[in-house]
Design a protein around this nucleic acid. Sequence first.
DNA 1: GATTCATGCTAAAAGCTTTTAGCAGAAAAA
DNA 2: TTTTTCTGCTAAAAGCTTTTAGCATGAATC
Lengths: 338, 338
Amino acid sequence: MKNTGDRRRTIYDVAKAAGVSISTASNALNDTGRTNAETRGRVRRVAEEIGFRPNALARGLLSKRSHAIGMLTNDTYGRLTLPMAAGVSEVLVDHGVSVFLCATNNDPRLAQLHLEALLDRQVDGIIFTATRLDLTPPVQLSRLPIPVVYVFAEGPADSVTFFPDDEQGARLAVDHLKELGRSRILHITGPRDYLAARIRAQSYLDACGDGAEAMFGDWSEEWGHEAVQTVFARPGAKPDAIFCGSDEIARGVIDALRDLNVEIPTDVAVVGFDNWEVVARQTRPPLTTIDMELKELGHRAGLAILSLSKGEPVPAGITKLPCRLVVRQSCGSPLRSE
Amino acid sequence: MKNTGDRRRTIYDVAKAAGVSISTASNALNDTGRTNAETRGRVRRVAEEIGFRPNALARGLLSKRSHAIGMLTNDTYGRLTLPMAAGVSEVLVDHGVSVFLCATNNDPRLAQLHLEALLDRQVDGIIFTATRLDLTPPVQLSRLPIPVVYVFAEGPADSVTFFPDDEQGARLAVDHLKELGRSRILHITGPRDYLAARIRAQSYLDACGDGAEAMFGDWSEEWGHEAVQTVFARPGAKPDAIFCGSDEIARGVIDALRDLNVEIPTDVAVVGFDNWEVVARQTRPPLTTIDMELKELGHRAGLAILSLSKGEPVPAGITKLPCRLVVRQSCGSPLRSE
DNA sequence: GATTCATGCTAAAAGCTTTTAGCAGAAAAA
DNA sequence: TTTTTCTGCTAAAAGCTTTTAGCATGAATC
């Protein structure tokens, strides 16, 4: 009596098989209206038996809620996006919400196309996420009839936005180094036009005070390498710790230090940022770094859009999620290695 | 006269504004039935004016085609998945097809949940993609009422499957090295239980014949490092080229060679596999490697599922997409650097 | 002048679900 | 006994689109 035919079973089939009307079937399945317990049980048994599953399209058409959301991203090779998207999808699947992935490639035409498709599909909300290069959406998102949540990107003034807490993350790194007795801490980071780079640098400067120095460059290993060479070539006191704006930079830093026969962590301790495992685990020694909790970010964004789509209030403004210090061996700390 | 109200405009609004029936409006918009050119023009103008866009749910409900597909993946941190997914999404958006991203985390329960959600949503097809660890889907996909395309994963005998052509890719690498006059080529690659590793290794052995040696380990930098140390510590002739099973391994290899004061590419040429830019561009010298054309793979998979969902025939079996040699500096070739 | 044909339009049905309004019958209250 | 209340069920509508069948009208054919 399983679903052998080609046609998908509908609630009509359930109703007929259970000998009730479709209204009763629907009521029994959804616990709405008034139904006799015995009938309810029978309907449910039958539904199970013939493998009935309600058609989400019909359901969405009526309820005006599709139980789907869109994720608009401009980050294709994204080591940022995918973990986050996975977090979103993971938390929402349990609420019966599915996620459309829309890669815009930074192309406004594509973004517009995707956006329209999402609206046509009656999605309940949109999560917009960007790499940090350009923080503004490539398409008008502010006057939409559905809620929008921004991640890694800033929306209009009163929008709901999530960021990792770069300031706290940087402080975490600096404090860790200080606790280990380091005093001459240098900061090597990415381009100054990245908001995240500026925030981390400022937090570092605030924490370290006089003598602190933040070197801006780009997000590459090469830059880390180059910066170290510059610093160690010039006269004056050398740093006893380097806080890097990314794990890639840290990797370049570590390589350069080794080339200079500087011992890590004995002579110089190094902290990265990203906890990009494939890099952080492979440096020698393995890198102590800051994890931005991307998956958690995804969870939070997913829950936020879920609440918004139900009309529940969500505090507007920027929510900064705490970063986490991951201790490995590049700072010579208590060896609770991972 | 723009869409100022809160309600989405329906075809009723178009019909009323154009002074025709909804059938005529529909016919005019879709070029079906018989409509006077003048009327057709008017209806379209009106539709444009009030910002009418057909409700995809209603459309799908009727046509039984949702113009959406699902992508089921078990690869969360995927440097493989995301570029591929972006390729799929990119090629399909122009056909009005959207993509559900379902991250299963290798959890069968989650996979089942996602699968059911996809079926409830009447998706027109499913693309299943796996990392190479376990090539079998965590969930029963074979007796589905909709087409399934497999990428990086093997489906049942007569299914439509796409892989990068690992054999040809490996040959590309070996041939390149041979053309540059290298004769003692070593192969260092990942675990033997990865199909891709075995295929590449076999292709390498076939191409190099006697004296060829494939060393299996894992996909890490560390293993590359270790393998090189082993080889250079033991007596006998040393290789003049190393073909690595991944860029990460190649990175470890290059580091180890430098530690041993072996000149790259003068003494030993190195080729990687993946063209994972963040690694391949950062090695010193930059890595010559094999690109698996992940985006193209996504395009092909997307087009295949599109055809299948329309009922058009698609050749069953495994399609292997050619890899591409990316020449950088680690082989000392003609310096058409990238 | 009577029949056929082509044209331009429309009413209604179908697709599947949930919800609203309401109908019988039985039990409780007057 | 008559009226009210409760219970369990159902018909029908609504949600939005596309498609089918068919109705007038005017032109062409016999």
